[in-house]
Each structure stands twice: as C-alpha cells, then as structure tokens.
C-alpha cells in the first residue's frame, strides 16, 4: 500500500529573530506526528535555499525590513498555495518595526542607522562607519507587515507563538478542519 502524498511545507525567516522557528521546534514529539503528514521543502530547517516545486503551505516568520525580505516573500507567495504569517513580526512588523516610530525626522533611516552604529550610547564601533558591504540588501524606508506586501491567508499570533497553537493550526489546516483559533489559544495573560 502506498502512503498518501505528503503536504509540502516551506518556511522562511525574514525580519525576525528566529524565535518563531524555534517555536516550531516547540511542537516537540508532535513533530514526529506532523512529519507523517508533511515534508519540508525550502526552509532554514532543511537548508534548501530555493523552491524545488510548488508548496502547499508557506510559513513566514518576520516582516519586511529590506529588499531581500520582499523578494523572498513574493517568491513564497508565487510558489505556495497557502501562506501563513507566523508571529507578531510577520503579522505587524513586531520589534523591528520600532524603527517606524522615528517619524519627526526628514531622514528617519539615516537617523536610525547613525544611532545604531555611531552615536548610540553603548556603541563601540572603531570604524565609525555604517556597514555598507555590497552584499548587504538595501533597507526599506520602514518595516512592513507581510500583509502589506502580499496577501496572507492565515496569521498565527504570538511572540513567539506556542508550539501548541502552531501544531493545532497546522494539523487542522492539513486535514481541512481549521475553523479559527480557540479562545484558550489566543488568551495571553
């Protein structure tokens, strides 16, 4: 008897801290259960860098703070049937979006970088330069939520979301039983 085809999942970390990917591992032994249903394609977990085929589900951690994030996110949208924003950074920009709060400046990006690399109180940067290696992707004017750049199908809240809510959502999506989050899943205090 042949096994049913497994769903293909791809993941990416954009402007995030990798905490959401760690949270995927928080599913613990349920990961074994899950791998019976899925195979993981492009992902930092597999170190596959580009899509080999179309994926059923794409999972995005982090919002967009640079051009590469935008590029990857668009690539995910083109290659995934269902796209999930995982965690607050992906949903709203999260912590990186704190730089969006620099509003009363003509050049908020410059101000942000100067404080981060030159003038900040605890900075010890002997070169007094802002890093500008040609390999570095250009930063965006602001940090954008994923849903501002592409259409997002589902959002899993939390910073980081619990292993429980990730498992619950994925397993229900895979079996066509997802009907939104239970109250206990999204109650944080």
């Amino acid at each position: 008897m042949s096994e049913p085809p497994r769903a293909r999942i791809a993941t990416a970390s954009l402007a995030g801290c990798f905490g959401c990917h760690m949270a995927i591992l928080d599913m613990d032994e349920r990961l074994i259960e899950l791998t019976k249903l899925v195979e993981i394609d492009r992902s930092p977990l597999t170190d596959i860098k580009s899509f080999t085929r179309r994926a059923d589900i794409g999972i995005i951690e982090g919002g967009c703070c640079n051009e590469e994030n935008v590029h990857v996110l668009r690539d995910f949208r083109r290659n995934c049937d269902v796209l999930i924003a995982l965690g607050q950074c992906a949903i709203m920009g999260g912590l990186p979006a704190m730089r969006n709060a620099i509003m009363h400046s003509d050049e908020p990006l410059r101000e942000c970088l100067e404080e981060a690399f030159i003038s900040g109180r605890n900075i010890r940067n002997t070169t007094h330069n802002i890093p500008n290696d040609p390999a570095l992707p250009l930063l965006l004017d602001e940090v954008y939520a994923c849903s501002e750049v592409v259409e997002i199908d589902y959002q899993i809240p939390g910073c980081a979301p619990s292993g429980d809510i990730i498992f619950d959502t994925l397993s229900r999506l895979l079996t066509g039983r997802f009907r939104g989050f239970g109250r206990d899943m999204i109650k944080f205090d």
Binding site: V70, L113, L138, L140, D141, E142, E148, E151
Partner: peptide, 24 residues
C-alpha cells in the same frame, strides 16, 4: 498573483539607495 500592487518597492528602497550610494 496575490502580490500587492499597493506596496511600491522602488519608493521603499529609494532612501537606502541614496544612503548606501549603490543600486539594488
């Protein structure tokens, strides 16, 4: 293609282009 036209990548990177003095 479910990609938002309302997000304008060119204007989003323009500031950084000038700051970094290089192109994308």
């Amino acid at each position: 293609d479910r990609i938002r036209d309302t997000f304008d990548i060119q204007s989003a990177i323009d500031g950084a282009r000038k700051l970094a003095r290089r192109r994308s």
